[in-house]
Amino acid sequence: MTKIPPLLETRNLTMRFGGVLANDGVNFSLGEMELRCLIGPNGAGKSTFFKMLTGQLTPSEGTIRFRDHPIDGHPSHEIARLGIGIKTQIPNVFNGLSVRENIWLAAQRKTTRNAARQIVDEVLERIMLKDLAGAIVGQLSHGQRQWVEIGTVLAAEPELILLDEPAAGMTDEETERTAEIIHEINKTRALIVVEHDMEFIKMIAKTVTVFHQGRIMLEDNVEAVLADSRVRDVYLGKKVAA
């Protein structure tokens, strides 16, 4: 009986900042083409988890395997080349460059000149920034910069896409558009999405993993998770529906 290895698997993943246990023995597994939502209150360790997956942090303990290939502690650019792309929580874009240049930089690394140009045009269309292609990114609104960053992630065509709070700072329409794009991407690729906005989670989620105090508290389908009283408890004080 051969089992297909998961796309991503972490074992006992732990991150300590001095005395703070930001991640505490996380065992996480994601299948090929899966769409997973990650929720949890502020400080639960979601962004730290993403940073370890993308080489921005070296785990204190534990392992990460991407397609059965160990990647924990590897530099970010190597992990990116293996096919993991991320939109970070705090927008990480090339502020001094144009929207088009941002997208081009993401697209050109592994393709030819013409293919890159085509990808750039497609992505600009998708993120609806075609009219602002020449604008300097630093002068755009927060929401637009989020789109630029999502655009760079799409243009790099990774196998696994991590989105850390993609809907933050977006209008309702933009949030819906984001959900649409996520569904589109998910036809060919796997995603992990961190969000606080429960309406948004309901729009996209199948399976939800709940982080609490650096550990996985619960993992189930979206209805079960949202009905779970413990989830409500940890979120108490936080507006559940946006």
Binding site: H77, A80, G85, N92, F94, A106
Partner: peptide, 13 residues
């Protein structure tokens, strides 16, 4: 412009 973003796109700064 942004070393982190460059690395996350696969360039070795």
């Amino acid at each position: 412009e942004n070393e982190t973003r460059a690395a996350l796109l696969g360039y070795d700064p």
